[in-house]
């Protein structure tokens, strides 16, 4: 097992390098003089000169990449000109808030999605199945930002159950209950789409598995139907569901950008959008690389979970 984890970690290195290359290449597509483009509205002559020096922008592409990569490996992602702050510090602080939001949403959508999918498959064509299918269809068709806005209107403005926006109260204690109150609406809004996708895939994975011969074997042994569904079938279906969960984690992280905007959540997504609109390219670059790297690490966790589940994967 330890060997497999080490192997997976090592295999992440080329992926991380690939990510840095892709980001570098995309950023190199920016037309015109790089320093001026990167600095955008902050392009004072001093800044341009400083950036040219820092990034070696007078050098050829390949060398610029390695200078940039070397700086990143030393924890230097450059400075944000719009915030006048080290990119790494800003991203890490913002990413924290995103993790709280996206993590909660991910847990919600995984549990709800898988459970709904299993029930839907076990009761195929029944009332529960039809109901779940309809809710799921609604969930995957509604834009998460629109859902978030509607939830604000109903639950925050009309019913006043939850605060309208933000992560913490402006006045009062920053304690756990305050966080939960602020987190509920955005986390649910964020979870809905992914839960829908997970439920659909879980349903079809379960239907696929329930037709397999080993399910008939379990029934021929006299295993209780509950155990056939939740033990035999679900375990086998998880082999297809877990990679989907990994992909959906990326979608939750992506959806967080919209939800952070709608709910004024101080996360990394909102930071990125602001950075793009102010053309704070270094902040975009650093934010993208750091978040993508975290996502790669998360996918390693998914792979390890998969190998624990499926003995056929060589460890």
């Amino acid at each position: 097992m330890a060997g497999y984890i080490i192997k997976r970690l090592l295999s992440a290195i080329p992926v991380l390098l690939g990510i840095s290359i892709i980001v570098f290449v995309i950023m190199a597509m920016i037309p015109g003089d790089p320093a001026t483009a990167i600095l955008g509205s902050y392009a004072t002559p001093e800044n341009v000169e400083k950036l040219n020096r820092d990034l070696g922008l007078d050098q050829p592409m390949i060398q610029r990449y390695f200078i940039w990569l070397g700086n990143m490996l030393h924890g230097d992602f450059g400075r944000s000109f719009s915030l006048n702050r080290a990119v790494l510090d800003e991203v890490l602080e913002r990413f924290n808030a995103t993790l709280v939001l996206a993590g909660t949403a991910f847990v919600i959508c995984s549990l709800l999605g898988v459970a709904a999918g299993v029930i839907s498959a076990a009761r195929q064509f029944g009332l529960a199945d039809k109901l779940i299918t309809f809710v799921v269809l609604l969930g995957i068709s509604i834009p998460s930002f629109f859902l978030g806005m509607m939830m604000i209107l109903i639950f925050a403005v009309d019913l006043r159950w939850f605060p309208v926006s933000g992560m913490w109260p402006i006045y009062g204690d920053r304690d756990f209950t305050a966080l939960i109150r602020h987190l509920t609406l955005p986390a649910i809004a964020l979870a809905v789409v992914a839960a829908g996708v997970i439920a659909r895939l879980s349903r079809s994975a379960m239907l696929e598995v329930l037709r397999q011969d080993f399910i008939r074997t379990a029934r021929a042994k006299g295993v209780h139907e509950r155990s056939v569904i939740w033990r035999h079938a679900l375990r086998a279906a998880m082999v297809t569901i877990i990679p989907v969960l990994g992909i959906q984690a990326g979608f939750v992280l992506s959806g967080a950008v919209y939800i952070e905007i709608v709910f004024q959540w101080p996360g990394v997504g909102r930071m990125l959008v602001d950075a793009i609109l102010t053309r704070d390219i270094l902040l975009v670059q650093g934010g993208v690389v750091i978040v993508a790297a975290c996502y790669v690490m998360f996918n390693i966790v998914v792979d390890v979970a998969q190998s624990l589940l499926d003995p056929r994967i060589k460890t």
Binding site: I22, V23, I26, L253, I276, V284, V288, A292, Y295, N299
Partner: peptide, 19 residues
Amino acid sequence: DMLMAFPYILLALAIVAAL
């Protein structure tokens, strides 16, 4: 796989940021 290693919106944001 490299492209899929990005949460999709990061890639989209990076492209929009560049273009």
